[in-house]
Design a protein around this nucleic acid. Structure first.
Length: 575
RNA sequence: CGGGCUGUAGCGCAGUUUGGUUAGCGCGCUUGCUUCGGGAGCAAGAGGUCGUCGGUUCGAAUCCGACCAGCCCGACCA
């Protein structure tokens, strides 16, 4: 492609609307423009990258034996009513009516549609398992779209669904998908981790997320140098023996102290001149028609995932009314002493003993000098809190580091959640109807593009890995008015085209600096620089975007040498 | 939905406090000449419902009111 004829509207300045690096750079590099909040034009350069990532995803899906198809973006609401998600999904689901008043949804994900298709077409266990996938535009009516394509309302996603007769068969496909996702992330050239996700402990289902590590990620993850990574709510915590909670044990039991208008742990600790760790939080949760009180140290957070696993049910934080009914006191003053009629469990970190401060179950009062083992009826001490960077790796016991990540992929064993709700069955070997056992596997294509930039850029612009770059080579003749430079550029351009290389020839009549700045901004992996300085010696320069120094080669060897360098670059990204 | 901020040329902004000639600057764009190893110089030019509607005033980008849109934080979602 000749740059003079391309549509690559680069910008010199950062757009005011963009906050994060990937968003700024996608706009400045002429990849992306905003049409409405969370809705974008993908310009040619951006679209080329999206297609490169799509191709990687497609190749890895095909390698697992999955089959690509394309489902409609517009789906009848009936399917969603059948699964129960028409009500459960909430306002993020874009709904509308057609001219004959039929209700439709614009699919944010396609479990319903695919389950309906498979149910209509696959009747026998003999035809299973099957894995189907599509790469498609999804729509989610995000409450607050932000960061460009990282959290958009319209985005490109690969979604795959597998159908099985047995859990064992699902396990096998899940493993294939899990491995495929690792290969995709490796081929995209990013530093990433796979982590077990919440929900994985309920009902035997299992789910993992693939997170690209970047400082601006929306999720917190804990990583260890041994390779372990996990989400704080999932990482098992081992308490390190006894712990001094700060103020020793006196006789005499708890003593009430006035704490007017003091609600949060920080406020209580400040008022009583203690550390948050010396205060105990009492959190009430409900599940089904039951309630449970959970104690954690003031500086810790309850892991709802761990609590859900303990309760074997989804848990919800109790509302103020429920709190009043159970504790007799208002929100913010709950405590374990004298608490009746509710199961009381505590995080293992509190087992060390010592005196702590808790709520008094009445307005504007706390209790100090509480010794949980003595003053409260704790029925179980469990690992119930979110892990933090201060904790140690459950695998190797080294200290953990807290990192931020962007979720690009999610693999999930669904089980019979959808097939059961939608009454979608196959006939098993004994002639009986059984619900399909399902898995689903999502991958955010446009999100991955942004995640790559977020991780691979410098102050000059994007640094594309060769595997996803919109062009492999950019040729920059530094002065189009000099015939010698122009001719050398043209020759190398033709050589590279003949070799099948995706090449961008910067034939624009711009000042030298502008061309070099633009080339760096759009991040093409390899630049062939043709300037008078080197052409006088009969050479041109080959420079990798990610490196500082250039290699000098004769113009007629440039295409061949470029091919070799790129081959090396691509090899590095192979799983 | 709550809190904060912002709407002035394609982009980035000044001007608004204290109303007053023809609304400015930088980048970009057009034409010409000169330049060319890190966003060139000179000259000439095009481009504006000052977010919208209403009000106050002899006079409104500027004051008042309502509305709309966008961005950030939070809540929500995952």
């Amino acid at each position: 492609m000749r740059w003079s004829q391309a549509f690559i509207p680069t910008l010199k300045e950062d757009p005011a609307e963009a906050e994060v690096a990937s968003h700024k750079l996608m706009i400045r590099a002429g990849m992306l423009r905003k049409v409405a909040p969370g809705i974008h034009d993908y310009l040619p350069l951006g679209w080329r990258v999206i297609k490169r990532v799509e191709d990687i995803v497609r190749q890895e899906m095909d390698r697992t034996g999955a089959h690509e198809l394309l489902l409609p973006a517009n789906c009848p609401a009936e399917l969603w009513q059948k699964s129960g998600r028409y009500d459960a999904y909430g306002p993020e689901l874009l709904r509308y009516k057609d001219r004959s008043e039929h209700e439709l949804v614009f699919g944010p994900t396609h479990e319903e549609v695919i389950t309906d298709l498979v149910d209509r077409e696959i009747k026998s266990y003999r035809e299973l398992p099957v894995t189907l996938y599509q790469i498609q535009t999804k729509f989610r009516d995000e409450i607050r779209p932000r960061f460009g394509v990282l959290r958009a309302r319209e985005f490109c996603m690969k979604d795959a669904y597998s159908f099985h007769v047995s859990k064992k068969s699902l396990d096998a496909t899940y493993k294939l998908m899990y491995e495929a996702y690792h290969r995709i992330c490796q081929r995209c050239g990013v530093d990433y981790r796979s982590v077990q996700a919440a929900g994985g402990t309920i009902g035997g289902s299992f789910t993992e997320e693939f997170m690209v590590l970047t400082e601006r990620g929306e999720d917190s993850i804990l990583v260890c140098e041994c390779g372990f990574a996990g989400k704080p709510e999932m990482v098992a915590v081992k308490e390190a023996g006894t712990r001094d909670t700060g103020h020793g044990t006196r006789d005499g039991g708890p003593e009430e102290v006035a704490t007017p208008n003091v609600h949060t742990v920080e406020e209580v600790a400040a008022l009583l001149k203690l550390k948050p760790a010396q205060v105990v939080k009492t959190m009430l949760y409900t599940y089904g028609d039951q309630a449970i009180a959970v104690l954690v140290r003031g500086d810790h957070a309850v892991s709802e995932a761990k609590l859900a696993a303990y309760c074997q049910a989804e848990v919800t934080l109790a509302d103020e009314q429920t709190i009043k009914k159970i504790t007799g006191g208002p929100l913010g003053f709950s405590g374990p002493v004298g608490l009746k009629g509710v199961k009381l469990i505590a995080d293992s970190a509190l087992q060390a003993g010592g005196e702590v401060v808790t709520g008094a179950n009445k307005q504007d009062a706390h209790l100090k000098g509480v010794v949980l083992a003595r003053d409260a009826e704790v029925v179980a001490w469990e690992d119930l809190r979110e892990a933090a960077a201060a904790d140690t790796c459950p695998k190797c016991a080294k200290p953990l580091n807290e990192k931020r990540g962007i979720e690009v992929g999610h693999v999930f064993k669904l089980g019979i959640k959808y097939s059961k709700a939608m009454n979608a069955n196959f006939i098993d070997q004994s002639g009986k109807e059984q619900p399909y056992i399902m898995g689903c596997y999502g991958f955010g294509v446009t999100r991955m593009v942004a995640a790559i930039i977020e991780q691979l850029h410098d102050e000059d612009g994007i640094i594309w890995p060769a595997s996803v770059a919109p062009y492999q080579v950019v040729i920059s003749p530094l002065n189009m008015a000099k015939p010698a430079l122009k001719e050398a550029a043209e020759k190398i351009y033709q050589d590279l085209l003949a070799a099948g290389t995706e090449v961008l020839l910067d034939d624009r009549e711009l000042a030298t600096g502008a061309k070099l700045k633009d080339a760096d901004l759009i991040g093409i992996p390899l630049r062939v620089t043709i300037g008078e300085r080197s052409i006088k010696e009969g050479k041109v320069e080959l420079k990798l975007r990610r490196e500082k120094d250039a290699k000098l080669v004769a113009p007629d060897k440039a295409a061949e040498e470029a091919g070799k360098i790129l081959e090396e670059e691509r090899k590095k990204l192979e799983p």
